[in-house]
C-alpha cells in the first residue's frame, strides 16, 4: 500500500494516537471545507462572470465570453470612472485613518489618566462601534441634511451652514460618520496598550529630566508602534469594504463624489446592470484588498522587529 519510505516517516512521528499527522488536518477540515468550498464556488462564479458580457437580468447561459475585455474597458476606456473610484477610495481611506489614528491616540492618552468614571467612559465608547451601519447611515442622512443637526451646531458656533449633500463635502460627511463610529476603535485599543506599558523606562526618563512630550515621543510611541500598526491594518481592511453607510447616505453621489470601489461594484453590477464589468471590478477590488493587506502585514512585521 504505502511505500516503505512513507511508512518509515510515519513511524518516526507517531505518538500516542494512531494517525497523529492527520489529527490537526482533520480538526481543520470542517472549517476548511465550509469556508473554502463556499469561497471557491463563489470565486469561480465571479471570475466566470467577469469574462462575459452578461447583463443583469439575462439568464446566465446567455452570457457571451469576451475574454479580458471588461478589465480592459474598466482600466483604459475614457468613459470608465473606475480610476475615479480608486482615487475616491484612496481619499476615503486616508481621510478616515489619519484623523482616527491621531484622535484615537490623543483621546486614549486623555483617558489613560487616572480619574473617576473611566470604566463608564470606555463603555460609552463601545456604542458607536456596534450600531447597525445601515441605520447609522439613515440617521446620518438626516443629521447631515441642510437643516440638520450638524449644520445646527456649525451655525451656532460659526454662523455658517454647509451643503453636506454637495460634491465638495459629501465625501467629508461620509468620513465624519466613520470618524464618529470608529475613532473609539483606536481609542480602546490604544488605551489597552497604554495600560500594559512597562513603568521602568518612564522612571528612568524622569530621572534624566525628560519632559512629558519627550517621554511620549521617545518611549511611548516606539513601544506603541506595533499596536498602532495592527490597528491600522485592521481598520484599513475594513474601510476598503465599507458599503452600507455610503449606500444609504448618498448612494455614491452626487456625481461620483462618494463612489468608492465597493459602491462602484454595486453601481456597475446592479444599477448599470453590467454584470461583466461589475464582476471584473469585484475581482480587482478583492485583489487590491488582498495585495495591500499582504504588504501592510509585511511592513508591520518589519517595523515591529525594528522597534
Amino acid at each position: 500500500m504505502s511505500t516503505p519510505k512513507a511508512a518509515g516517516k510515519t513511524r518516526e512521528t507517531s505518538g500516542r494516537s494512531r494517525h497523529p499527522h492527520l489529527t490537526p488536518y482533520s480538526l481543520i477540515l470542517p472549517a476548511f471545507a465550509v469556508v473554502f468550498l463556499l469561497a471557491a464556488y463563489s470565486f469561480f462564479w465571479l471570475i466566470q462572470l467577469s469574462l462575459t458580457d452578461l447583463t443583469f437580468g439575462q439568464p446566465f447561459e446567455e452570457g457571451v465570453s469576451v475574454g479580458l475585455e471588461n478589465y480592459r474597458w474598466l482600466l483604459f476606456h475614457k468613459s470608465s470612472t473606475f480610476w475615479s473610484a480608486v482615487r475616491i477610495t484612496g481619499l476615503h481611506v486616508s481621510g478616515t485613518l489619519v484623523p482616527e489614528l491621531l484622535l484615537g491616540l490623543l483621546i486614549a492618552l486623555l483617558l489613560s489618566r487616572k480619574m473617576r468614571g473611566n470604566s463608564i467612559f470606555t463603555a460609552a465608547l463601545i456604542i458607536p462601534i456596534v450600531l447597525m451601519p445601515s441605520m447609522v447611515g439613515m440617521v446620518a442622512r438626516l443629521y447631515f441634511s441642510y437643516d440638520g443637526l450638524i449644520n445646527f451646531f456649525i451655525e451656532t458656533f460659526f454662523g455658517a451652514k454647509f451643503n453636506w449633500g454637495g460634491k465638495d463635502l459629501a465625501l467629508l460627511a461620509v468620513i465624519l460618520v466613520d470618524i464618529w463610529e470608529w475613532t473609539p476603535f483606536f481609542i480602546l485599543i490604544f488605551l489597552a496598550g497604554l495600560q500594559t506599558l512597562p513603568p521602568d523606562p518612564y522612571e528612568a526618563a524622569l530621572v534624566d529630566g525628560a519632559s512629558a512630550l519627550q517621554s511620549f515621543w521617545h518611549i511611548t510611541l516606539p513601544l506603541m508602534t506595533p499596536l498602532i500598526l495592527t490597528a491600522l491594518v485592521l481598520r484599513f481592511m475594513d474601510v476598503l469594504r465599507i458599503f452600507d453607510v455610503i449606500f444609504v447616505m448618498f448612494g455614491g453621489g452626487p456625481g461620483t463624489a462618494t463612489t468608492t470601489l465597493p459602491l462602484y461594484v454595486y453601481r456597475t453590477t446592479l444599477l448599470a446592470e453590467d454584470v461583466g464589468r461589475g464582476s471584473a471590478a469585484s475581482v480587482m477590488l478583492i485583489i487590491l484588498i488582498l495585495a495591500s493587506t499582504f504588504l501592510l502585514v509585511r511592513l508591520r512585521q518589519r517595523l515591529s522587529f525594528q522597534a
Binding site: A39, S42, L46, I286, I289
Partner: peptide, 21 residues
C-alpha cells in the same frame, strides 16, 4: 493566513456570485 485572507473579501463583491449559488 488563507483563512484570514478570505475574511477580508468584501461582501458586496461576491454577493452576486452568492446569489447564483
Amino acid at each position: 493566513y488563507a483563512f484570514l485572507g478570505l475574511q477580508m473579501v468584501p461582501g458586496i463583491s461576491i454577493v452576486f456570485a452568492l446569489f447564483f449559488v
